[in-house]
C-alpha cells in the first residue's frame, strides 16, 4: 500500500458505517479523490474536525483497492479570514456565503473530470474562489456566478458574451442560447433563445473576465437575470443541474 501526500479542498462528506466517512476532495496534483476517513465521527477522533467541507488541508493518503484511505490530515492556512479561523467555520457562520459556497463545491465536484486526473486549474480556481468568499468583501452570489462561469471555461465550456458563439461575427448581439455556447447573432439564433438585457450581458462578461468594478456596480435585477442565465448555461452543459443551486440565498 503506497502513501502519497497532497493539498486539497474537501468537497463533500458522506457517512459510512458506524463512525467513518467517505470524503471527496479536490487535490492539487491528483485531481478529485474519494477516500475513507476512519473513525472521524467519533468525538475522540483526532482529525474529524479538519475534514469538514470547505477545509483546506494537507492530506496523507494510502492507496486502497477502490477507495483510498486518509491516514493523516493537517489544516492548511486559515487564509481569507481576518480572525484566523479555519475557512469552514468562517463560511459556515455566514448563511449566504454558505449556500453560495456549497454550490461552488458541488460545481467543482462535477466539473473536475475523472477521479485521479489532475485538475490543477480547477483546484486553483476553487481555492481562489473560496478565499474571496471567506474574506466577505464581495457579494456571495456574484462570487458564485463568477466561479461557475470560469469553472465552465476551464472545463472547456467557455461561454461567449461578445462575438457570436456560432459564426464568430463580432458583437454585441442580442440572443443568448446555452446550446450554442453563449450570445448569437440574429442569423444563428435558434428558436427559443433568451433575449437578456445588455446590462446583464455586460455583467456576465465582467464576471468571466474578473472586472469587479463593473460587476459590483450592477443592480439587483441585473444580477438576478444574470444568475438565471448562468444556471441555464450550467444545466445545459452538465446535463443535470446542481442541487444546491436552488437553495442559494440571493
Amino acid at each position: 500500500m503506497s502513501l502519497y501526500r497532497d493539498e486539497a479542498i474537501v468537497l463533500r462528506t458522506q457517512k459510512l458505517g458506524e463512525a467513518d466517512r467517505i470524503v471527496t476532495v479536490l487535490s492539487h496534483r491528483h485531481g478529485r479523490v474519494r477516500a475513507v476517513a476512519r473513525g472521524v465521527r467519533r468525538t475522540t477522533s483526532r482529525f474529524g474536525a479538519r475534514l469538514e467541507p470547505f477545509s483546506h488541508v494537507d492530506l496523507q493518503l494510502a492507496e486502497g483497492r477502490s477507495l483510498h484511505v486518509v491516514t493523516q490530515v493537517e489544516s492548511l492556512s486559515t487564509w481569507g479570514s481576518s480572525s484566523g479561523r479555519p475557512l469552514g467555520s468562517v463560511i459556515g457562520g455566514d448563511y449566504r456565503a454558505y449556500t453560495a459556497g456549497t454550490a461552488m463545491l458541488e460545481a467543482a465536484d462535477r466539473l473536475a473530470g475523472e477521479d485521479f486526473e489532475p485538475a490543477v486549474q480547477q483546484y486553483l480556481l476553487l481555492v481562489g474562489g473560496l478565499r474571496v468568499l471567506a474574506a466577505g468583501e464581495r457579494e456571495p452570489s456574484l462570487v458564485l456566478d463568477a466561479f461557475l462561469l470560469r469553472s465552465l471555461s476551464v472545463a472547456g465550456y467557455a461561454p461567449s458574451f461578445d462575438d457570436c458563439a456560432r459564426c464568430g461575427e463580432p458583437g454585441p448581439h442580442r440572443s443568448f442560447s446555452p446550446p450554442m455556447g453563449g450570445m448569437t447573432c440574429s442569423a444563428c439564433r435558434p428558436p427559443g433563445s433568451a433575449s437578456p438585457r445588455p446590462e446583464t450581458v455586460a455583467l456576465l462578461s465582467a464576471l468571466l473576465t474578473g472586472d469587479w468594478t463593473t460587476a459590483t456596480a450592477s443592480d439587483e435585477r441585473t444580477r438576478r437575470e444574470g444568475a438565471g442565465l448562468v444556471a441555464a448555461y450550467l444545466q445545459w452543459h452538465l446535463e443535470r443541474g446542481l442541487r444546491s443551486l436552488t437553495h442559494v440565498d440571493r
Binding site: 456549497t102 454550490a103 463545491l105 442541487r243 444546491s244 436552488t246 437553495h247 442559494v248
Partner: peptide, 9 residues
C-alpha cells in the same frame, strides 16, 4: 440540517 448539496433547504 440545511445541506444544499443533498437538496435540503
Amino acid at each position: 440540517a440545511i445541506s444544499p448539496i443533498e437538496g435540503i433547504g
